[in-house]
């Protein structure tokens, strides 16, 4: 089963904007409402829009289950490795070892109410990115798996 050409074209045009908005929510998770889980869910919505608009055979050539579940595994691994590095550097598990370090995301944060700087907060943006990639892979691969199970039975 496939949707009409109008739906497919609109989904193709809408997809990049949803992607940009989702990554905005993920990367600004330490400044504005949102974060890894919410942004990943928004990006997964874009993927599901693409999956639902096209036929299964068409989609499974462009988006494979292996890449999505591989991204999910990569996100979880990045999350755990970031947490364990805090332990290895002499802190605790989940210690914020990048904050105020001068490296990436290392600017010192201003205290009190302030407009915010993207280049602060240490490991929190990295963990946001990890959780975002994981949620995006997990939620899209669920729909892809279910669609493949139905396409197998020829419905």
């Amino acid at each position: 089963m496939t949707m009409s050409k109008i739906v497919r074209t609109a989904a193709g045009w809408l997809f990049p904007f949803i992607l940009v908005f989702g990554f905005y929510i993920v990367m600004h998770g330490h400044l504005t409402p949102g974060g890894g889980f919410q942004g990943g869910a928004v990006i997964a919505t874009g993927f599901v829009l693409l999956i639902v608009a096209g036929s299964y055979g068409d989609i499974s050539r462009r988006i494979t289950k292996a890449s999505l579940s591989g991204g999910e595994t990569l996100g979880l691994l990045l999350f755990i490795v970031t947490a364990i590095t805090g332990l290895a550097l002499g802190g605790t598990f989940f210690a914020n070892w990048l904050a105020d370090g001068g490296l990436i995301f290392g600017n010192p944060v201003l205290f009190g109410a302030n407009p915010g700087d993207l280049n602060t907060a240490g490991v929190i943006p990295i963990m946001n990115l990890a959780v975002g990639v994981e949620v995006l892979g997990a939620l899209s691969v669920i729909v892809l798996y279910m669609l493949s199970g139905i396409a197998e039975e020829g419905a």
Binding site: A41, A44, T45, V48, I51, V52, L139, I142, V143, M146
Partner: peptide, 8 residues
């Protein structure tokens, strides 16, 4: 978004 798609 997602749950409706999964149900359908």
């Amino acid at each position: 978004g997602l749950t409706t798609a999964i149900y359908i």
